[in-house]
Design a protein around this nucleic acid. Sequence first.
DNA 1: TCGTGTGAAGACGTTCACAGCT
DNA 2: AGCTGTGAACGTCTTCACACGA
Lengths: 231, 231
Amino acid sequence: MFLDKTGNRRLVKFVEIDREKAGIPKKTIYRLSLYHRCLFKLTENGLETVSSSALAKAAGVKASQLRRDLSHVGQFGTRGLGYQVEELRMAIREVLGREHLQPVILVGAGNLGCALLRYGGFQKEGFEVIAAFDAVPEAVMKRDIGVPLFNSEKLDSFIVKNKVKLAILCVPAEKAQEVANDLVLSGVQGILNFSPTVLQVPEKVTVNNVDLALELENLSFFIDRDGEEEE
Amino acid sequence: MFLDKTGNRRLVKFVEIDREKAGIPKKTIYRLSLYHRCLFKLTENGLETVSSSALAKAAGVKASQLRRDLSHVGQFGTRGLGYQVEELRMAIREVLGREHLQPVILVGAGNLGCALLRYGGFQKEGFEVIAAFDAVPEAVMKRDIGVPLFNSEKLDSFIVKNKVKLAILCVPAEKAQEVANDLVLSGVQGILNFSPTVLQVPEKVTVNNVDLALELENLSFFIDRDGEEEE
DNA sequence: TCGTGTGAAGACGTTCACAGCT
DNA sequence: AGCTGTGAACGTCTTCACACGA
């Protein structure tokens, strides 16, 4: 779609590059989302063009890396000038498949789950959580969560009926694998997992783990070393 | 500070390791935390020894990778048998510097911040959030958050007085950089950042970003591809 | 025999540096 | 001039495969 008409490009290794998605490194995808967000802010500020170095700085990466990442998207830059902010944003948006947004469900409406529902971050980036599920919905009812809440029994049929492919998983660690199995069986293909558990899923299913305690622990490793400041 | 003046002979291995903290890859550190957690579960189940392949499976990594990671910790395995669960766990714990835990503060007690405070995950892994701060504490007061809550004005002095090095940042995106600057000036060296913002900090400060919308977006990329093709 | 520890190889990701376009 | 796009160099992480010890 992007680089075919230039013709005889030597695609020695992965001839599949036209089928873009398979060819773009996972880390690049992640950063593309970041660039997308930065470009949006630039648009809000009325900027029309931006250079790789300026955008890179906004995203916290090196300019060379940004250009490398964008090379997976296509050639949008004007040499000597930079990129058209809006054009580039749309191109990234297309590559990321953000034109038609996926509906999302949330499973496990405990403390964290409810907070995520109220947290505007997902909506602001265009995701809509269309329903929440909990094993004991009565306990959650009194909280104002702003989306329909169902008993977990309804989970499977809801997923099938609404063709849900994305789920946020906030159940206790002990239940996580079990619930994940249900999700996968019903057709969910992506799970954002907040449980401190290593989920076992089929290869075609993607799991992104958000492990809060692990992040903290990781941070603390890089801190405590100068508590003693030897030498 | 760890094991110097008491001069235990049996800990000779560790002394070397202690010096090379800088030499362990970041990704390995992350996985070591994961192994640590898995080993803890094994202990609870009464297991005394474990092979690299079994532990690797529990952690969701390849056995070869696990062994490579552990080689940064030292030689604890018994060929033909495996590892002593408890011994290995202690060794990892030591490398990670988990013997003396860092106190943590939380800044920005909105929806997400409050949920994190109530969420038991940090405590369960040994971290203690000793205080929370908010620009408008009155709005939060009525919620039961279980830790002392202060006005953000008190932030700097509190950090200095309590020698806080770790902070969880949950303020709105617009405020994030500003608050981060304060934290760094007061002596914080590690920030767990939940704001969808690229923080600019000095090199000696570590920032771990937990960007929820970005994770979802990333997931959705790997989903929508077979909405149309079934080959 | 079994399973660790590790050199070597490979895969992957990043950065350099410059050709080439505006 | 200024800036992109990219081959090539470089560095990092992962996996293989096997020597060696229990």
